[in-house]
Nucleic acid binder design. Structure first.
Lengths: 155, 155
DNA sequence: TATTGTTATACTCTATAACTATA
DNA sequence: TATAGTTATAGAGTATAACAATA
């Protein structure tokens, strides 16, 4: 109703105040920074996500992984192809159901995963350089809480 | 050094504990949820970002907007084309430098921006449904702090 | 007939490069 | 010659759909 000139409309301020807006923009920034650091390993963020998912549940069928990561099965095929070419994962036919390809991390895969963790920690340090230790701890805690609040086994 | 069987390697736990990993995955999720809600308005998240940037600084050249949003100028052209077709922005030649196209929000643009804010708030409610009010407030505060800590005029 | 994985294909998003007009 | 914007083109990433092998 008011028509104050020069002041921002409530709309933009309201949008900028939302979680989704801030999570979206900061998430894109964080992913870019992380991607730049794992590029030298021959990996993209999605590869790191797949390695982490594999390590968390050690050995899983490609279909399981597809739903766990929230992507389509054909994408798992190409990610796994690339990781296999790097020697990071092994594909083994499940003897109990020969349609299934069971993926497992190799020693090299675990080594790469550890490198990814280092890269993420370095990106964290860069991203949170302007925050106090207390702020950073609080942020980490709240993000984990939000993550836990998503569909229990969410991506 | 230890080789506990069945336990996750330190790598995955370490990666999952980082800010970039959690920001990246939650950011992608948040953006998807937001995108689903603004789709009916004929908008994608990037359009909402451009509207918000325009509202915050009311009228800007396309080059300014490109650097502010961290995208290439040619992307601003197509986003602005689409917003103009929706009647959300106006392009006016700067009389002092006729190479410049100054973009401004129209009344319809402000209306759409307000709708985007509503969509984001609805997505927030869905995303943070499992959090306490205190957790949600804390998360919002920490995210704004992190955002403020990026390159002062960061995207 | 249903399911797992694979391949072939197409679509979306965004960037790079070439071009136009103004300065 | 340099800059703002535009257009043309190409690449990355991911999805959809058709297919093969196994259940």
């Amino acid at each position: 109703m008011s028509d104050v000139k020069g002041a921002a409309t409530p709309g933009a301020a309201a949008l900028r105040a939302t979680l989704v807006f801030n999570l979206g923009t900061l998430g894109a920034l964080a992913t870019d920074r992380f991607a730049a650091r794992v590029e030298a390993l021959g990996l993209k963020p999605k590869h790191a996500g797949l390695l982490a998912a594999l390590d968390a549940e050690s050995a899983a069928s490609q279909q399981e992984l597809a739903t766990r990561l929230g992507v389509v099965p054909s994408l798992i095929v190409s990610l796994a192809d690339q990781l296999q070419a790097l020697g990071a994962v092994e594909r083994v036919r499940d003897p109990e159901d020969r349609r299934r390809q069971v993926l497992t991390l190799t020693a090299e895969g675990r080594r790469l995963l550890a490198r990814c963790a280092e890269a993420a920690e370095a990106a964290d340090a860069e991203l949170a350089a302007g925050l106090t230790a207390a702020q950073r701890t609080a942020l980490g805690r709240e993000l984990r809480a939000l993550r836990a609040a998503q569909t229990p086994d969410g991506r």
